[in-house]
Amino acid sequence: MISLQKVTKFYGRLKTLSEVELEMKAGHCYALLGPNGSGKTTLIKSVLGMVIPDSGEIRINNQNVAGQYLYRKQIGYMPQIGQYPANLRMAQLFEMMKGLRPDVKNTDEELIDSFGLRPLMDKRMYSLSGGTRQKVSAALAFLFRPFIYILDEPTAGLDPVAVEVLKEKLIREKKSGKLFIITSHILNDLEDIVTDMVYLFEGSIRYNSAIEDLKTETRESSFAKAIAVLIKNQDLQIKELVTP
């Protein structure tokens, strides 16, 4: 589905991604983990074409994405920090996004309802709280029923109720065999959803395997503990990890 070959990206002299090789298949849900500044967001943005890698190739369905844009039809993206035109009302925002994609008639507005965004529709985007903005980002990511979901820190800033709503939605979508890439520091939130783990450290992939293998390997039953053990064993310093 998605394959990255020797993807390298420099920001000035800083090597953010260093020859990243990664294969991601449909039906799987990948947890993209790593400390701050390890290149998670850069990796995601490279797949989206927002960041242009200095070398290497990214292929989606065997098509090189460099310079392409139509492949983004299949991608729903929820950014880490949702930035929206400040003076736009929420209703106008959704209307605009739908107006830009007239090819999708049957939009998925379930999250708008279950997050309770309808009563806020006439609010301007600048007046929304960070959490509400996250909800808008999530609703936009699901709106066009994409096949690939890329969620950057989806649960950060959401209240526990909203996290549950999002999780349930993810589990339901997962059943239809779609591909998910999720980055998060809050590992407990991901427990029931992820099937695979990719660990990024200083711009390169240090660990990539199915969760089940990880659990047997580390002899831990919980996902979060297994990761903690793994990081300790491999001496990959990570400080902001939340363990139970």
Binding site: Q83, Y84, A86
Partner: peptide, 16 residues
């Protein structure tokens, strides 16, 4: 000022 708007469009199937 429209940087956010551009950012929003870049995640959609629209070319630069």
């Amino acid at each position: 000022n429209s940087y956010e708007f551009i950012l929003l469009l870049m995640a959609q199937p629209i070319n630069r």
